[in-house]
Structure formats: C-alpha cells, structure tokens
Design a binder for these strands. Structure first.
Lengths: 100, 100
DNA sequence: CCCACTACTTGACACAATGGAAAGTACTCA
DNA sequence: TGAGTACTTTCCATTGTGTCAAGTAGTGGG
C-alpha cells in the first residue's frame, strides 16, 4: 500500500488541476495552464505563488520575441507531495469500490 | 471512459471523506462518521446539512435507549455525483501516470 | 526616445467557506 | 424535575478565493 498524505494545499480544485497538468510533463507554459484551467491571470498567478512558496513548483522566465514567458514545473518535493496526495485520495475512495 | 463531473460541493476535504465513507456502506451513524473524520459535532452537522440540501445525503433518526441517533446514507443522486466526481479526479490525475 | 503591447504580478476589496465555542432543542431515564 | 445524550444552530473570527485595477519588465515600431 503506497504511502499517502492528504495535502490541503494541493487539494483545492485549481491547484489540484495545476499539479496534475504539471505532473504529466516536464514543464509547461503559464499561458497554457491558464487556458486549460480557464481562469484569470491573477488567479493563476496567485495559486502558482502559493505552490512556489511551498516549494512544490518552480518557474523560469524565457525571453521570446514578444517579451518573455514563464515555464512552470513541479519540483521533486512537489511531485512527491502530489503523488502522496493522489495515493491518499485513492485510499479514501477505494473503500467505495469494495462495499460490504 | 466513464463520465465525470468535478463537483465542488463534494470535493471539500471533509465532505469528500463523508461521501467516501457513506459510499462504502448502506448507511452509517453520525457518531461513527464524526469519529472517523475527527471533527466536532457542529462541523459535521453543518457539512451534512449542506449535503442534505443538495439531496446527496439523507438521514433518519432512530430511537435508542439513550435517546436517538442519526443514521446517514447517500441518496441515489449522491451516489451518482460522488461516482462522477471520483471518475473526474481519476481523469484529471491519470495523465500523470502516462508522462509524455 | 516614447508609446503600445505582451505577460505576468500585486494590491485593494468583497464575499463565501470553514471551524471553534457555546447555547438551544428534543427526548429519555432515574 | 434534573441530568444526560445526541445532535443543531448561532455567533464570531479566520482564511480562502475571486474580480478589478494598477504596477512592472522587456520588446518592437514610429
């Protein structure tokens, strides 16, 4: 049975989606995540900031023709926390697949 | 691929746990759920009320020697909503199991 | 060089959600 | 009648989340 810890920071809908998207890839653009979640710049920016402060996400700015864009990725810590959180969700919900 | 809808009412940590516990059984006592979640009476009572107002949970009072106790269960609607929510969680998070 | 534009970031503010503490309700038993 | 059980509701403080507007930093055009 994999270890799992319910992580409230990750659990909030938007942050869960951010982490899930980032967990699937090495890194992704701010703009792409924002479009996937369909939220405003400021909402995404603030949620990312919280994840960065927890050292779950890291960002790097890349110069492009139009200015610069932000690439986001999960840190090793973030990947582990996300993994443990979904293990915990699994554990909580799998009860319902084996009803008495 | 099972249908799934992200349900914010169910997603909140305590309500997700309540639904998961109830999904595993036909019905359960208020007191048992409260001990499982380790929350106060008032917190559980309020969360149950929200789930009842959404017609996800139903309750019945049963007379016992010491007074009466409340038995809780998921309604058909609640079971369906919970099932769809965990399908959606599955869908969101399974991406991370098939990295590019 | 200044202005517009892109791509976020931050601050001010409003409002909904959550929780603890304590009072209230309903019922039973001694 | 008074105590105890089992919630329920109210009051209040805190936290979370979102909108909107303004701020910042770098780039390209006139």
């Amino acid at each position: 049975m994999p270890k799992g810890k319910f992580d409230e920071l990750i659990h909030a809908p938007n942050r869960l989606k951010i982490c899930a998207l980032l967990a699937a890839v090495k890194e992704s653009e701010f703009r792409v995540i924002r479009e996937e979640l369909d939220v405003s710049d400021s909402v995404l920016s603030k949620q990312i900031k919280l994840l960065e402060e927890a050292n779950y996400v890291q960002s790097r700015k890349v110069n492009v023709i139009t200015g610069k864009v932000t690439w986001l990725s999960l840190t090793k810590t973030g990947r582990k926390a996300f993994s443990e959180h979904i293990n915990e969700l699994q554990r909580i919900t799998e009860l319902s697949k084996n009803p008495l």
